[in-house]
Simulated assay, not measured.
Amino acid sequence: MSLYEDAVLVLKGYGAQGHGADPEQHRLRDVYLEHLAAHPDGVYKPCRAGHITGSALVVDPARGRVLLTLHKKLGMWLQMGGHCEPDDATLAGAALREAVEESGIASGLTLLPGGPVRLDRHPIPEPCNWHLDVQYAALAPADAVAQISEESLDLRWFPYEEVAAVADTSVVRLVEATRARL
């Protein structure tokens, strides 16, 4: 199965995972599926109409906190994430790879069962138009040691309650949706 085929299956199953009750998430899922139907290359960065990205919020539920990165290019506190690569077999694998690379947590990260937690579509600068982000949550092991990557200005654990003070609405919604699934 190709990454494209996996993306279509993941998105078709997304509404069946209980997210269909949220009209905005249901609408976004349809937008993502329409995008993929129109763009067979829509999972990769070169697709100028926009492309699927995979991200993962790294969570330490035992301590009630999340790991955020201060993105070097955007100057914003965000979850770990980025573009799908040719070696990625699945969206979940792409999100987990990004979480490992950007968090520096070399082993023990596992995705929260049940598939993606949220979808978030946001505009990006030309030459592309959109990131169609498929957002997962990654559970950190108790002994997790984070290490800043080249893509970050900073990397920091935030208690759930402090995220709204440092991050945008998209990240806040991702934290809320993740906590609801824990």
Rank of each mutant, 00 (worst) to 15 (best):
P116Y: 02
P116N: 05
P116E: 08
P116F: 01
V117Y: 01
V117K: 02
V117P: 06
R118P: 07
R118L: 03
R118I: 06
R118N: 01
D120L: 13
D120I: 03
R121L: 15
R121E: 14
R121P: 06
H122G: 10
P123K: 03
I124K: 09
I124T: 06
I124A: 01
P125M: 03
E126C: 08
P127W: 00
P127G: 01
C128W: 15
N129F: 15
N129W: 13
N129I: 15
N129P: 08
W130P: 04
H131M: 14
L132P: 04
L132F: 13
D133E: 11
D133G: 05
V134H: 05
Q135D: 15
Q135A: 15
Y136Q: 02
Y136D: 04
Y136E: 07
Y136C: 03
Y136F: 13
Y136P: 02
Y136L: 10
A137Q: 00
A137S: 02
A137M: 05
A137F: 02
A137E: 01
A137C: 05
A137W: 00
A137H: 00
A138E: 00
A138M: 00
A138T: 07
A138G: 00
A138D: 03
L139K: 06
L139T: 04
L139V: 08
L139G: 06
L139C: 09
L139D: 05
A140D: 09
A140I: 10
A140G: 04
A140S: 07
A140R: 04
P141I: 11
P141G: 12
P141E: 07
P141C: 11
A142V: 00
A142S: 14
A142P: 03
A142L: 10
A142Q: 09
A142Y: 05
D143L: 04
D143P: 01
D143W: 11
A144F: 07
A144G: 01
A144K: 03
V145L: 15
A146P: 07
A146M: 09
A146K: 08
Q147V: 12
Q147H: 13
Q147E: 14
I148Q: 14
I148V: 15
I148F: 09
I148C: 13
S149G: 13
S149K: 06
S149R: 07
E150H: 10
E151Y: 12
E151N: 13
S152F: 13
S152N: 14
L153H: 12
D154T: 08
D154I: 08
L155T: 04
L155R: 02
R156F: 09
W157I: 04
F158T: 12
F158K: 04
F158I: 07
F158Q: 05
P159H: 14
P159W: 09
P159Y: 10
P159T: 10
Y160E: 00
Y160P: 02
Y160F: 14
E161N: 04
E161Q: 10
E161C: 10
E161K: 11
E162Y: 08
E162C: 03
E162K: 15
V163N: 03
V163L: 12
A164T: 03
A164R: 07
A164Y: 07
A164I: 04
A165D: 14
A165T: 11
A165P: 01
